[in-house]
């Protein structure tokens, strides 16, 4: 369960405040997979970052008894000079894993991400697809209550997309996802409910179809 109470988040521009969330209050019930829709710059990624605990609202409270993964996006989360292997070790260590578990993680991530020799190359040499494969493969190793996924499922070739969807479907049996995507088929396939962010407000929809409908209306 995730509860937002009177949450406001704005970015200061030169002349005024640009609100991405304006006094928003709502609750996401337990046990549902959430698709998040909105236009570019509407605040989807900001919301995910706030849920992931690395960004903070200017006002209000976000509370949840659950654990969240790091936001898996196309951009951050990796230090360019570290290799894929070093990064896996680093993340395992900050989650307090033992040496045995770290070795397990390295094996499974290396296998899943299909990086081959690039696993031991600095991440700055990776393509964005390779980065998200690494990030996604690594997150599967942990048992979070919520996986936070920002657009990463649409990268990679067809083969890898199928593989990650399959892995995700299996993972969903034990956890839930918060998914930002512009691909309606993926949202329909994986999510139960949807929220649409538009002009600083959040609209919660009980079914993902309603959310997609609403999103399409915004775009008209």
């Amino acid at each position: 369960m995730i509860e937002l109470r009177n949450v406001s988040k704005f970015y200061q521009t030169k002349h005024n405040r640009n609100y991405v969330l304006n006094n928003v209050t709502f609750t996401i019930p337990s046990g549902v997979n959430v698709g998040i829709l909105g236009r570019n710059g509407a605040g989807k990624s900001t919301l995910l970052r706030m849920l992931g605990g690395i960004d903070f609202p200017n006002q209000g409270i976000i509370s949840s008894p659950n654990s969240f993964s790091w936001p898996m996006g196309l951009a951050g989360g990796f230090q360019g000079s570290m290799t894929g292997r070093q990064n896996v070790k680093f993340v395992c260590r900050i989650y307090g894993k033992s040496d045995y578990e770290i070795n397990q993680a390295i094996l499974s991530v290396k296998d899943f991400s299909e990086l081959g020799d690039y696993f031991d190359m600095p991440i700055k040499t990776y393509s964005s697809g390779m980065r998200s494969r690494l990030s996604f493969g690594l997150s599967l190793f942990f048992n979070f209550d919520y996986l936070i996924i920002d657009e990463t499922l649409s990268v990679g070739d067809k083969n890898f997309q199928e593989k990650s969807k399959k892995a995700l479907r299996k993972k969903i049996e034990t956890c839930n996802i918060l998914l930002v995507s512009h691909s309606m088929p993926i949202l329909k396939e994986l999510c139960d409910v949807g929220i649409v962010i538009h002009k600083g407000k959040i609209h919660y929809c009980d079914t993902i179809e309603d959310a997609i409908q609403r999103y399409n209306n915004i775009n008209k």
Partner: peptide, 11 residues
């Protein structure tokens, strides 16, 4: 130098 690692809330 470590800002990319702030993506993990523990750091």
């Amino acid at each position: 130098a470590n800002s990319a690692l702030f993506a993990y809330k523990q750091v």
